[in-house]
Computed example of a mutant assay.
Amino acid sequence: MHPILKKAFQEEMEIAKTLYKDSKYTESFFHLERAHILGQRFVLPHTVNHWWMLKVGIRKKDKREVFGQIIRLAVAGIGSLIGRVPIGNTGGSNIGIMKVLPIEGDLKVLFEKAEKNE
């Protein structure tokens, strides 16, 4: 994982975890989605991210999210390993598991910087 993306991923995950501990689950999930975009190409970050999404789904008592995250946990690492991830997908169960989405805003800028610094 490029250091620029790794740093941003870790920052988003830390914000998400802090919000989770403060029972701010919707806000936590927003940062988990951002982290998902950053880390989905890499086995461990991708899998850890879905674990946290599952935890939020459980806390919110959102059956759809819990079910969706269990499925995503089962396939996320494999998808990253073989390079079959839908770029830009935010990882939540409200988005199709293989739906590609545009990467926009500050995350797009981070990807562009990482690409230039390879």
Rank of each mutant, 00 (worst) to 15 (best):
M1Q: 06
H2L: 13
I4V: 11
L5E: 11
K6W: 13
K7W: 13
A8R: 02
Q10M: 03
E12L: 00
E12W: 05
M13A: 04
E14V: 11
E14G: 08
I15H: 03
K17A: 09
K17N: 04
Y20C: 03
Y20H: 09
Y20E: 08
K21D: 10
K21Q: 13
K21I: 01
D22A: 13
S23D: 15
K24A: 13
Y25A: 01
Y25H: 03
T26M: 10
F29T: 02
F29H: 08
F30Y: 15
H31W: 03
H31D: 06
E33F: 00
E33I: 02
E33N: 11
A35N: 04
H36E: 07
I37H: 02
L38K: 01
L38T: 00
R41Q: 14
F42G: 05
H46K: 07
T47H: 05
V48Y: 05
V48Q: 00
N49L: 03
N49E: 10
W51C: 06
W52S: 00
M53C: 13
L54V: 11
K55N: 06
K55L: 10
V56H: 02
V56I: 13
V56T: 09
G57E: 01
G57C: 00
I58Y: 12
I58G: 02
R59Q: 15
D62C: 15
D62V: 11
D62E: 15
E65P: 06
E65N: 09
V66S: 04
V66H: 05
F67I: 13
I71W: 05
I71K: 07
V75H: 00
V75T: 14
A76V: 08
A76C: 03
G77M: 08
I78K: 14
I78R: 01
I78M: 12
G79S: 07
G79T: 11
L81N: 07
L81R: 13
L81H: 07
I82W: 15
G83C: 15
G83Q: 09
G83H: 10
V85C: 03
P86A: 01
P86N: 10
I87T: 09
G88L: 08
G88W: 07
N89P: 06
N89H: 14
T90Q: 14
G91T: 06
G91S: 10
G91E: 07
G92Y: 11
S93T: 09
S93G: 14
N94L: 14
N94I: 09
G96P: 06
K99A: 08
V100T: 15
L101T: 07
L101Q: 15
P102Y: 12
I103R: 00
I103S: 02
I103N: 03
E104P: 07
E104H: 04
E104I: 08
D106A: 15
L107V: 01
K108D: 09
L110G: 04
L110P: 01
L110T: 01
F111A: 01
E112S: 08
E112G: 05
K113W: 12
K113G: 14
K116H: 07
N117D: 11
N117L: 13
